[in-house]
């Protein structure tokens, strides 16, 4: 039986843990700890190791969902978590100062994994921060020679997270 494993990554506070909690069939495994740096002005806790949840697809297949810590100092966890993964969800917070630069961090660090599998980009908080828009993201990706799907999402909504996963499945499906 093939095992489906997807990974969620993106900057601290974008909503990786929230996304996994929104769709997981059980209370997800969380490893959040108290934040003690500038993030603590916005958010009390941050993920130090991983999030883990599970969702069953319509065809009965189980998908394991892992969230990474966002900060680069935890990049050793990124290496561990992509092991055996079949696709990557990159979440980008449009309310941060430079969302495209944020995106580049994850495109760069997961470049090998993205090349070997597939990725989808979910842009959050677009209703309050419409710029850059989806065309800007597409153009930016094109400059990197990448054609990845980009979706506007509210990851607090289950349907939005499911849609990201559906698109990712289609992207990763061998032709």
């Amino acid at each position: 039986m093939s095992e489906l494993k997807f990974i969620f990554t993106g900057p601290p506070g974008v909503g990786k843990s929230t996304a996994i909690a929104a769709v997981s069939e059980f209370a997800p495994v969380v490893t959040d700890v108290l934040a003690t740096d500038e993030l603590s002005d916005i958010k009390a806790q941050t993920t130090a190791a991983l999030d883990f949840g599970e969702i069953t697809l319509d065809d009965g297949e189980k998908v394991r969902l892992y969230g990474t810590p966002g900060q680069r100092r935890f990049s050793f966890m990124w290496e561990i978590l992509i092991e055996g993964g079949l696709g990557l969800v990159i979440l980008v917070d449009n309310s941060r100062p430079d969302p495209l630069a944020d995106l580049d961090i994850y495109l760069e660090n997961f470049s090998g994994f993205i090349r070997d599998t597939g990725a989808v980009i979910g842009v959050t908080r677009m209703e309050s921060h419409p710029q850059p828009d989806l065309d800007d993201f597409a153009a930016h990706l094109e400059r990197h020679g990448l054609a990845l799907p980009v979706l506007e999402v509210d990851i607090r909504r289950r349907e939005d997270v499911v849609q990201l996963l559906d698109v990712l499945m289609m992207t990763c499906e061998p032709a």
């Binding site: 495994v29 969380v30 490893t31 959040d32 700890v33 190791a49 100092r73 935890f74 050793f76």
Partner: peptide, 21 residues
């Protein structure tokens, strides 16, 4: 030091999570 600090934070968070679970 900075690598060991990040890794210790992850490991302890996982240990606590495993204990709860």
């Amino acid at each position: 030091g900075s690598k060991l600090s990040a890794m210790s934070s992850s490991l302890l968070a996982l240990g606590e999570s495993l204990s709860r679970e």
